[in-house]
Structures are given as structure tokens and as C-alpha cells.
Amino acid sequence: MKILALETSARACSAAVTQDGQILAACCQNSGLTHSRTLMPMVESMLKNADLTLDGMDAVAVAAGPGSFTGIRIGVAAAKGLAFAAGLPCAAVSTLEAMALGLSHLEGHLIVCAMDARRSQIYNALFEVRDGALVRLCPDRAATLADLAEELRGDPRPKIAVGDGGALCQAALTELGVACALAPARLLHQNAIGVALAAEAMAAAGQLVTAQELLPVYLRPAQAERLRDRQKKESGT
């Protein structure tokens, strides 16, 4: 199965195409430029340079969240547009699961996925590698680093943090007495290759959706929504 994947959940922006577990093309930019400027030109040039076409894809995958509210909206909107244009199904991939796939060779390790959610929280999920495969241990969630440290305290498995919040997580856990390594720089940040590989498993499990059904996953309300709700409460409306 040939899958076009997009990753815009954090500062870096990437796109990739995989087929049956093999990487056919990949492109990444970590310049800090807005994804609305970089994503579609990146996809177009990647497909052209690899002699691939959108019509030749079997599905479009996207990191649907959690992550940056703006970044997730851009990625999901782009995936919906591409899928609508080509009549393709979509895969709404967990950003956290996709980043964990880069460490699925670490047999017996506990993979601690972390994205900086601000407000003293991280977006987090835990995975264990068993027989070369990821096993999810909890749902995607927003958690404090103190609560995560208490949950992991006493767990004998070697731990490794990954994601754009990985360094923050690793430092906090270490300070709180929980030994945790940090994924190497080349594997630390989320990327579209992981999104594509996760989407292949979703396709095999019959978990693809239509472009219309594709939705972002935020885990908590956006800052603008929280401010609006607070203002309504204060004004009594």
C-alpha cells in the first residue's frame, strides 16, 4: 500500500511516502517557517522529484494530534484537501504513536513520548517494545511531569524520552529521581515517516476514514476557547 503522509504537529514540518514498509520519498524542514507556507510546496516537490503522483497513492495520512493547535489544523486541512482531490481514504494517526515508531528497535524499553503542552503539562503516551513491535500502555493524554514521574517510579524497564518535549521530559524525570535517557537527535523529533508507517498498520486493521470524517485530535481546548469560556463565566453570560 502506497501512503502519502504529512506531519505538522510541532515546529518541524515533513512529508513522506511509504509502500509496504519501505520509504519511497521523504522531506523535512525545521526552519520555523509557518507550515501554511512550506507544507504544500514540500509535498509537490517531493512527489515530482521521486516521480510519484497523488493519483498513485492509496491513502493520505496525517498526524492528527495531539500537538500545536495551528499546526494540526494546517496538516488535517491539507490532508483532507489532497484526499478529496484524489478520492482517497485517510488515516488519522496519533502524533505520539508515530514518533514512538522510530524507537521500535529498542526491545524491552519503555518509550516515553512527550510534546510540550505548556501550562506545566506535556502531551504523553507510553509504549513498550515487545518482539520488535510497539505495545501501547496508555491512551494519549495531557499530564504533568510530576504525575508522570510518580507513575514511572519503580518501573524497572529502561526508559527513553522522544518527541519535541523529550528533552524537557527527560530532564524533569531525572531531577525527580526517575532514570530516563533521551532519544538521539536524529530520532528525537516526530516525522512523516512514522506517520506513514503507523497508517499502514491502520489500513491493515481497517481503520481508514473518509476525507469528510477526518478530524483533528486536540486533547484539550485551544487557548482562545479557554479565554472565551473564562470571559463568559466572568460576565455571567
Rank of each mutant, 00 (worst) to 15 (best):
M1I: 03
M1L: 06
A5L: 06
E7V: 01
E7Y: 03
R11T: 13
R11I: 10
V17Q: 00
D20P: 03
I23E: 12
C27M: 09
C28G: 02
S31T: 14
G32W: 11
G32Q: 05
G32Y: 08
S36G: 10
T38H: 00
T38K: 00
L39T: 01
M40C: 03
M40L: 14
V43Y: 02
M46I: 05
K48F: 12
D51E: 15
D55V: 02
G56V: 07
M57N: 06
V62W: 02
A64F: 01
P66H: 07
G67L: 10
F69H: 13
I72C: 08
R73A: 11
V76E: 05
A79R: 02
A86Q: 13
G87Y: 04
V93P: 03
S94C: 00
T95Q: 00
L96S: 02
L106D: 07
L110S: 03
A117R: 03
A117S: 06
A125L: 07
E128R: 13
G132F: 11
C138E: 15
P139A: 13
P139G: 12
P139T: 08
R141I: 03
R141C: 12
A142H: 08
A142E: 14
D147I: 01
L152M: 10
R153F: 13
P156F: 10
A161H: 05
G163F: 08
D164Q: 11
A167R: 12
C169F: 07
C169P: 05
A172W: 12
V178I: 12
A179S: 15
A179Q: 14
C180S: 09
A181S: 13
A181G: 08
L182Q: 08
A185C: 06
Q190A: 14
A192L: 10
M202K: 00
A205M: 09
A205G: 08
A211D: 12
E213G: 04
L214V: 03
L215N: 07
P216N: 00
Y218K: 03
L219W: 11
Q223A: 13
R226L: 15
D229C: 05
R230Q: 15
S235A: 15
